[in-house]
């Protein structure tokens, strides 16, 4: 565990708690992509199946359990409790366009051809693109609420910090996992455009809106 990894994890935790809190507090999930949240739920569930097979640390187990619980709670709020506020007209990205190719790739490119390993690989690949429905939704409506943009910033920071963590681990521990690194870089690149808008608009007190 290095500092980049720890701050990355905390940023990840902050992001998902922030989104859950916002939906709960405003009693609304307007502007939030339910499809991205379903895919993140799928990411955590398929990745953390090793909760049952492999104990790493209290920290690891606790964080995994929190991620799964928060993801399920968020999906529940969007699709059940506050369904009336869900912007389904703008959440039109087709999940199968991501899940099917990613599933195929996980079968073809993985470390080991076993069920758990393929599901882990699937989850790594899926996480790298799971935010696309949310970004697509923002590009469709042309704007995002400020808390939603803080959520995206925290989530993107987590990915960027993980890259620094991998560089650190490569140099100091000789450890690297190419699948995680490539997928993590793809994922971080997807946030670059958003980071630019966040720094130029939201940090100056403006709402995130796209130029017409």
């Amino acid at each position: 565990m290095n500092i980049f990894r720890l701050v990355g994890d905390l940023s990840h935790l902050l992001a998902i708690l922030l989104l859950l809190w916002k939906i709960w507090k405003t009693r609304s999930c307007a502007g939030v992509s339910g499809k991205s949240q379903i895919m993140f739920g799928l990411v955590y569930i398929t990745r953390y199946l090793d909760l049952f097979t492999n104990f790493i640390s209290i920290y690891n187990t606790t964080m995994k359990a929190i991620f799964i619980a928060v993801a399920i709670a968020t999906i529940y709020l969007i699709y059940f409790k506050f369904k009336a506020t869900y912007d389904s007209n703008h959440d039109t990205f087709r999940m199968e366009f991501l899940i099917v190719p990613v599933g195929g790739l996980a079968f073809l490119v993985n470390h080991d051809f076993t069920a758990l390993e393929i599901l882990w690989t699937f989850s790594i690949y899926l996480e790298s693109v799971a935010i696309l429905p949310q970004l697509f939704m923002i590009s469709k409506t042309g704007e995002a609420e400020t808390i939603t943009s803080h959520y995206l910033f925290a989530l993107g920071s987590y990915r960027a910090l993980y890259i620094v963590n991998w560089v650190y681990r490569y140099y100091f521990e000789g450890f690297f996992d190419l699948i995680a690194i490539v997928a993590g870089c793809v994922q971080t690149i997807l946030y670059c455009d958003f980071f630019y808008l966040y720094v130029t608009k939201v940090m100056h007190g403006k709402k995130l809106s796209l130029p017409a």
């Binding site: 565990m1 990894r5 994890d9 990840h12 090793d50 492999n54 790493i56 640390s57 690891n60 964080m63 995994k64 991620f67 470390h111 080991d112 390993e117 882990w120 993980y162 963590n165 000789g174 450890f175 690297f176 996992d177 995680a180």
Partner: peptide, 10 residues
């Protein structure tokens, strides 16, 4: 070096 047991990242 790659080992499956090293899946300590979240």
């Amino acid at each position: 070096k790659y080992a499956k047991s090293e899946k300590d990242e979240l």
